Simulated scan of single mutants.
Amino acid sequence: MKTATIAEPAATLAAMDGASVSGEQFGIYVHVPYCAARCGYCDFNTYTAAELGGHASRLTFVHDAIAELRMARRFLSGDAVVQTVFFGGGTPTLLPAAHLIEILRVIDGEFGLAAGAEVTVEANPESVDAEMLARLAAGGFTRISFGMQSAVPRILALLDRRHTPGTPELRVAQAFAAGFQHVNLDLIYGTPTESDADWRRSLEAAVAAGPDHISAYALTVEPGTALARRIARGDLPAPDDDVAADRYRYADEFLSAMGYSWYEISNWARPGAECRHNLGYWRDGVWWGVGPGAHSFIAGRRWWNVKHPAAYAERLAAGVLPVAGVEVLSDADRHVEDVMLRLRLAEGLPAAALREGEYAAAVRAAADGLLDADRLAAGRCVLTLRGRLLADTVIRDILH
């Protein structure tokens, strides 16, 4: 995809000052970039206490986030009611519950939360307890996502996770008891040394916990991470793509049998429990990203904040948006992204959205068993199970 990167982001954003999000699927993402410890596989924009410099800390984050939200409201015009809010990280629940609730109240005060708005917070199982969960639910949070990753102690240790097996299951029960409407568990498959039995054990434990949403992601070895270095040294074997494919097939079969339906390649939910915030990303909604390194997308422009919390705080203290860069997307760019994102969904992509050559490629993909031929004949491009395993190839062939 070709995009025009703007050299002067502040000037570019000033040119769209007053952009309206009225009538759009509008969400707000809040990136809380703090972790108690760094997991060996993670390359997200996160910081432990030892990695933070001056002018930034967990306790000052609430003031910086609120400052950016108030700037955002002045920047946008019209009725900017928020349908979804997602606190991600990092580990948002390392902040006091009062700070998370205060940020949510400012979002409501500045923009207004739609009736029935979905408000999600990510958490590690060891970063919350029943009291904190009750405070968050009472403060307006409706959905929580726990990083379970595995139910096998050996795999948790390899991934540098700090909770013990059984804790995620306890937190699911406590979250529902506290009043959360929806609960997700995140799983990772394909970890070096993981066996088929390990993966079955994790899936069975996750389902037995009773969440209404489960996400399952293949482990990706990101350059520069501790895990990548261990594999490069030969301390661990690299993940095997064929093994990961087998894990995915088993997960889809097992979760489907347990009443969960896939609605996005890596996500399964019980009816009505799909993550509306993430669906906004995949369905070409608009959002403002708050926090260090957070991305935003409004009026055909994508921009991202400076990454380090200290630099982020300094920009806000100076009264300027903490923007590091901007891309202006052409109609061709928007089309490419629409195909890439909507094809990940079980609802698929309207075939009418494809151009002539792209439709011909979709017909070939259906003949190869990668797209559902009956659905294509009815006007929609929907990946088959095999197509989901080869989604990147399918998308590339359609777009080229």
Results as ranks from 00 to 15, higher is better:
138 A>C: 05
16 M>Y: 15
183 V>Y: 01
227 L>V: 08
29 Y>W: 08
17 D>W: 14
162 R>E: 11
399 L>P: 00
144 I>E: 02
265 I>K: 09
226 A>C: 03
243 V>E: 08
264 E>Y: 09
36 A>M: 09
59 L>P: 00
28 I>E: 01
384 T>I: 02
171 R>Q: 13
78 G>C: 04
224 G>V: 04
51 E>R: 14
293 G>F: 00
72 A>L: 07
47 Y>L: 06
187 L>T: 11
184 N>D: 14
252 D>S: 11
22 S>D: 12
391 A>P: 15
17 D>S: 15
219 L>A: 05
225 T>C: 07
102 E>L: 06
80 A>Y: 01
133 L>H: 08
335 H>L: 01
158 L>E: 05
130 A>H: 11
296 S>Q: 03
164 T>G: 12
112 G>W: 04
63 H>Y: 10
240 D>K: 04
2 K>T: 15
122 E>R: 00
174 Q>P: 14
37 A>D: 09
359 Y>I: 07
268 W>Q: 12
385 L>A: 15
88 G>H: 08
132 M>Q: 13
277 H>F: 08
226 A>W: 03
196 D>P: 12
155 I>H: 02
258 M>F: 02
330 S>C: 03
86 F>N: 10
185 L>W: 09
12 T>V: 14
15 A>C: 05
363 V>S: 14
334 R>F: 02
380 R>V: 02
182 H>I: 11
69 L>V: 00
269 A>F: 09
108 D>C: 06
229 R>E: 15
104 L>H: 09
187 L>K: 10
81 V>N: 04
352 A>I: 07
75 F>S: 00
163 H>Y: 11
20 S>P: 09
240 D>N: 12
229 R>Q: 15
79 D>G: 05
214 I>F: 06
390 L>Q: 02
320 V>W: 02
303 W>Q: 06
326 V>Q: 01
366 A>W: 01
216 A>E: 13
392 D>V: 14
261 S>C: 03
241 D>G: 08
309 P>M: 00
280 G>P: 02
225 T>D: 09
191 T>R: 08
235 D>P: 04
184 N>R: 03
106 V>T: 13
157 A>P: 10
330 S>A: 10
51 E>Y: 09
313 A>L: 00
177 A>N: 14
188 I>E: 08
397 D>E: 15
338 D>F: 14
46 T>M: 08
284 D>I: 06
3 T>W: 13
170 L>M: 14
